[in-house]
């Protein structure tokens, strides 16, 4: 039994000690924002915060987080730094396929938590472990600068508010539908 803090709540898991944290989160806690990309700590899609530090969860045995605090993209949702980053991500239209973006945002949040006004070089250095095959890199760079500026002067939200809360939650509809037992469900009858 492994006990740790997960997104602010105490969790106990009875899983193999060598199971990577990623699969404990996805398969056992059923929290899916953290993504599987390479399984070798090479692409950054699985980045979470371990006691605040960016960590590749696909190569970290779950036993190693006993007694520590794990935060995923879901747990960071209302964090002020993450909120500023998300707004900048939306303002600059950063995501394309979006699969790597949880990891990108977690790495970016860790960067801004330790460096409130990063240079381009700081960004390159902190973000070079996160691969994006859609090539959103130049927008990620701009968005991190933007979020840093917003956090430095919270009143400066010009161009951002219009994007927030304007009915952008439609895509929850795209989630998978549960299957009823054999033959019980019939779609599309009217």
């Amino acid at each position: 039994m492994i006990t740790f803090m997960f997104n602010g709540e105490r969790q106990q898991l009875d899983v193999a000690a060598d199971m990577p944290l990623l699969w404990a989160i996805r398969d056992h806690l059923k929290v899916n924002g953290t993504k599987f990309g390479c399984g070798k700590g090479l692409c950054g899609a699985c980045t979470v915060h371990l006691d605040g530090a960016p960590t590749r969860s696909c190569v970290l045995p779950v036993a190693a987080v006993a007694g520590r605090a794990v935060t995923t993209i879901e747990g960071a949702e209302h964090d002020p730094v993450m909120t500023a980053l998300r707004r900048a991500w939306i303002e600059y239209g950063v995501p394309q396929c979006g699969y790597c973006q949880s990891g990108q945002l977690m790495s970016a949040a860790a960067l801004l938590n330790g460096n409130s006004r990063p240079s381009d070089e700081d960004i390159d250095s902190a973000m070079s472990g996160n691969i994006c095959r859609c090539g959103t890199y130049s927008r990620i760079r701009k968005a991190i600068h933007r979020a840093a500026a917003t956090l430095a002067s919270p009143g400066d939200t010009a161009g951002i508010e219009q994007y927030a809360g304007a009915g952008f939650g439609n895509f929850v509809e795209l989630k998978a539908v549960a299957v009823a037992p054999a033959g019980a469900r019939e779609e599309g009858q009217s």
């Binding site: 899916n32 924002g33 953290t34 993504k35 995923t72 993209i73 879901e74 949702e77 980053l85 998300r86 991500w89 939306i90 239209g93 950063v94 995501p95 979006g98 699969y99 973006q101 949880s102 945002l105 994007y163 952008f168 939650g169 439609n170 895509f171 929850v172 795209l174 989630k175 998978a176």
Partner: peptide, 15 residues
């Protein structure tokens, strides 16, 4: 705007 940007910054987009 990009209509899928918001859901792709929260981890809620379902791949």
């Amino acid at each position: 705007h990009r209509l899928d940007a918001e859901v792709k910054t929260t981890g809620r987009a379902q791949f």
